[in-house]
Write a protein that binds this DNA or RNA. Structure first.
Lengths: 343, 343
DNA sequence: TTGAAAGCGCTAACAG
DNA sequence: CTGTTAGCGCTTTCAA
């Protein structure tokens, strides 16, 4: 640590109001207020004077005072798990692009568990000045849902659906089916599955739906998945690795593995390599999501367009904020398998 | 798209004030206000009544009205490039952990360029109600810096230093030197460098400092880096790949390559594999940052603790918000080389 | 521990 | 395009 420079005489005046600005600029407070809220309605000359005064005083607005109508604050919240998936950044990018157009700020809340989500929703500080929320990959329990409902706060869910709210989801069932068909086409049988161990199921989790689509498509082709070829764990590389060691070390190991997430698939890849198995020669590996790292690793995967999902979520929310009476929507994103070098 | 459920009779009341709450709870507005701001000063009985009323009305506070003193808003900003590096999430995680303790919200701003940063700082909406800002990996030009200074807004820089502000940086020079020593120890010579093409240098960029540390340590060992073994580009996998194809396809290719970022190193790895080169047999590859994907790929790299840097940045900012007169600090994070399978 | 009343920074008619 | 003025939601004395 190294000291750099001292704040000379604490120039932090922290206290000018539009009255001060008005005085310095020699206009009325109304004009200053107007300049702040609808700059196009004030003369260029006057604007310049005001801008200078603001600069000089380092004026900073004080709050959403006055008026009853001004209910919009230009700020939405995004609630995300504390350990955000790699997909988080890509989705965020999609969101910020549209929020910027609407001159809307984005505030991030991280939560550890569904319980904490509820706590958030309960706490006053949360409800403070937000025009809407996007909730990512979190289960909504009844308490939270009713609270949200009664608050009349527009909500959009991402990667999780709930009857009361709008949502953006990829077509998980189809994704699973596509994975199955891909293995079928290539003749990679028998094939297994690596999914997410389920926490109390307030609603359907993606892992389950992907599995259902997968299993069903296989069944239609007359193929059954052996129970010993299915393993459940966390959605992490480490968990995928551990599951892979178990699944791939057995004599009757599967010829292919479909993981419900790229993270797990990456773990599987590592396990396969350590066991000296050729991929896809000995085992084929297919992930889900198409996070950036999938491309870097050459991992074949079922792609959902992450940036697009973020963009859609934000658009859905903005339109709902504008017209609250519009019906809820559930948008299904299309999915496709991206064959790379692990299948 | 599928319609789900209709908002029956628009229960979005959007309009209760403390007056309504006070009426329902049969207390005065003062008491409600007190309950909101310092709950410990109001009777448990009364608190319960008020809480019920708030619940019933789905009351949401209206803004930072009244009072001059209440200057803190409990919200800080993070400014990040529009295409955030993978390191972004890890740093963010570190930040949210400490912000949560301080009951502080985090709002994200994405910018495309230093010019846009300046624009942000100029725009009124930005200055609106923020207790401080963390600026990630962005160059601060003189205009922006003076604006920030005069606004008296506490600032912490991450991965970029500036004489007027506090900052958190890893020891880039040492990182470069460690990379050099690592190659020297292993006898990986001659060795090259892949860095970032410099944009107008308002201040020292990490790439440059890493290069300096690298070159100097090599020079001390009597080793010079051949100009044809140095290439500059963007900090992306694609750019790293392109640079790698160029660098590694020549007859006098280097025996080792140090990249200023993991992203570029990943691109190099891909290029090396495509050219049929054994890594590290034919070329050794060393990255910088230690992003998650580096572990997944087995990439050797110079690690800076990303989560820790986020944590420190947030702590620095909070302490400065509390005590603005405290001197600026520049924190240097330690670095170390993590040998994996590419060296 | 509570309430009446004064005052805060700000917005929104409305008149010019 | 601008200023006067009423009034908003809220906090903060100050007295009880």
């Amino acid at each position: 640590m190294k000291e750099l420079s001292e704040n000379s005489i604490t120039p932090v005046v922290q206290g000018s109001t539009i009255y001060d600005v008005a005085e310095v600029a020699a206009v009325s407070i109304t004009t200053v207020s107007r300049f702040l809220n609808s700059p196009e309605k004030v003369n260029a000359q006057t604007s310049r004077k005001i801008r200078e005064a603001i600069d000089k005083l380092s004026y900073i607005p004080h709050g959403n005072t006055g008026s009853k109508s001004k209910r919009q604050v230009g700020r939405i919240g995004v609630i995300t798990p504390f350990f955000p998936a790699p997909s988080f950044v890509q989705r965020l990018q999609g969101m910020t692009a549209v929020l910027r157009q609407h001159h809307c700020e984005l505030v991030i809340y991280t939560v550890d568990s569904p319980e904490q989500l509820d706590e958030y929703l309960h706490s006053i500080p949360f409800a403070k000045r937000l025009d809407g929320v996007i909730i990512m990959s979190m289960q909504i329990d009844p308490a939270a849902s009713s609270r949200l409902d009664r608050a009349g706060l527009p909500v959009v869910l991402v990667e999780q659906s709930h009857p009361s709210f709008s949502g953006v989801e990829c077509d998980n069932r189809l994704g699973g089916a596509l994975a199955a068909r891909h293995f079928l086409d290539k003749g990679y049988l028998p094939c297994g599955f690596v999914g997410e161990a389920l926490v109390p199921p307030y609603s359907l989790r993606p892992s389950e739906v992907r599995w259902q689509g997968y299993e069903e498509a296989l069944k239609q082709a007359g193929v059954l998945v052996a129970p010993q070829h299915v393993a459940l764990g966390e959605t992490t590389v480490d968990s995928g690795y551990a599951l892979g060691r178990k699944l791939l070390d057995r004599a009757d190991r599967p010829r292919a593995l479909f993981a419900m997430s790229d993270l797990q698939a990456i773990g599987l890849l590592k396990a396969a390599r350590e066991l000296g198995l050729a991929v896809p020669g000995d085992v084929a590996l297919l992930g889900f999501d198409d996070i950036e790292a999938a491309g870097w690793l050459g991992l074949s995967t079922v792609s959902q367009n992450l940036a697009e999902s973020g963009r859609l979520a934000a658009e859905l929310l903005m339109s709902r904020i504008r017209e609250p009476q519009r019906p809820q929507q559930l948008i299904h994103l299309k999915v496709e398998v991206i064959p790379r070098s692990t299948t």
